[in-house]
């Protein structure tokens, strides 16, 4: 039962291939941890040179990565979305410590199913990415976790 399911986001299909930079690719999986609990795992692959920001950038800094797990309907949220250590820089312009991720990082959200027959959970992530000379405006990507 403890199997991983990966899903390539519709994201690939919806984002135009030309011109638009696409430095962060999202994949999802759901890991069963008990009878009715899952870890929803979101993997972000960040292209060379780009930064994806933490969920906890102080206000007035760059826009943090934000997950929407609304906890309505089929499941309950158990705690916050966990993230990895990442890199922390002391940014002189914002005058604050800013945490970001490079190359690969994983976010995890534990949930408890209210509806045991649920086949999937939908959520979304809003994020921005920058490299040394440019930023991409924030965009939102739908995340779908297949349960089994």
């Amino acid at each position: 039962m403890r199997r991983l399911f990966a899903l390539i986001m519709l994201f690939y299909a919806l984002s135009s291939t030309a011109q638009v930079y696409n430095p962060v690719k999202w994949t999802t999986s759901a890991v069963k941890v008990s009878e009715n609990e899952y870890d929803l795992v979101v993997k972000a692959a960040v292209e060379k040179g780009w930064h994806l920001y933490s969920q906890t950038v102080p206000p007035d800094g760059p826009l943090p990565t934000k997950f929407t797990f609304d906890g309505k309907g089929d499941y309950l949220k158990k705690g916050n979305t966990k993230e990895e250590e990442g890199h922390i820089v002391d940014d002189k312009i914002f005058n604050m410590k800013i945490k970001y991720f490079e190359s690969k990082t994983i976010f995890k959200q534990r949930v408890q199913l209210k509806n045991k027959a649920a086949k999937q959970i939908k959520s979304s992530v809003e994020f921005m990415a920058c490299d040394d000379s440019k930023c991409l405006p924030p965009k939102s990507v739908e995340l779908i976790f297949k349960l089994k």
């Binding site: 800094g61 760059p62 312009i93 920058c130």
Partner: peptide, 8 residues
């Protein structure tokens, strides 16, 4: 944008 470090 205010959050764009390279812009600032």
């Amino acid at each position: 944008a205010s959050w764009c470090v390279p812009c600032r």
